[in-house]
Amino acid sequence: MGIYLIKRVLAIIPIILCLSFLAFVLINLRTSDPAEIALRVNQMTPTEDMVNAMRSTLGLDQPYFVRYFSWISKSIQGDFGESYVTHRPVAEHIATALPSTLQLAAVALLIIIVCSVVVGVLCALYEGSVGDKLMRAFVFLSAAMPSFWIGILLIWLFSVKLGWFDTSGMERVSSVILPAVTLSLGFVSTYIRLIRNNMIKNKNENFVLYARVRGLKESRITLKIFINSMQISMTALGMSIPKLIAGTVVVENIFAWPGIGRLCVSAIFNSDFPIIQAYILIMGVMFVICNLVVDMINMMVDPRLRKEM
């Protein structure tokens, strides 16, 4: 098992390298001159001398690969450069913003897991009932509704009309609820459907028949079906973690939640490239690592996959 783990980790390294190179290429596709932007943003009219000076300060006059290597080596050490706007280290911005996003994503993940498991299991056990049909209609609708629309409707209902929650910001513990619910709604429908379909498929499997034949209690059989279904759904749920983190952009914007999504969007408006650059790299790496972790957990849980090692 240990050797396999090491092999997998080593296999990721080329992927991350390619990712970082792709990120670098993307960044350098920008049409505007970053030296000029850096000057403009600080309300300085760019004369040619100043632009050239800024260019060498930012290290933009060096050859392509040299720039790539210096960027990549600095990034590994955690130095993502300085924001063009605030002149503070990008790492500092990210360090403040990332925990907030992770917090939001964690609460949303909890809501997703609880809702989809409960509703999915119930729908599968009572397949074809009125409740099942209603749930499927709901699932369908929520997949077609834009999350930002749900967000603003929820704000109107719960904050403006009922006054139960804050409209924005991160002040109280309760202020995480509306953003987390909005964020989760986009995913809950997929997972309810997934768990429900997996359970229904498993209900008709041979091992369920044999369990009945052996005279096992119905509750035990349902538990077996559940564990088998969850095991399949877990990969999908695991993959939703990076998607959640990436998908906070809209929600953070509506609810003025100080996370990296909001950071990235304002960086885009300000053409603050170092922040955008760091965002892409970090998100990409997180995605790949999450993939690996989910694979590993899956392997630990399902004895059939261990055979492949």
Partner: peptide, 22 residues
């Protein structure tokens, strides 16, 4: 394809819009 798919789609979209301009 592998490299492109190793990025989450939302991040890719934000990246491109961010770099090319909104």
């Amino acid at each position: 394809c592998d490299v492109m798919l190793s990025f989450p789609a939302e991040v890719m979209i934000l990246a491109i819009v961010g770099i090319l301009g909104p």
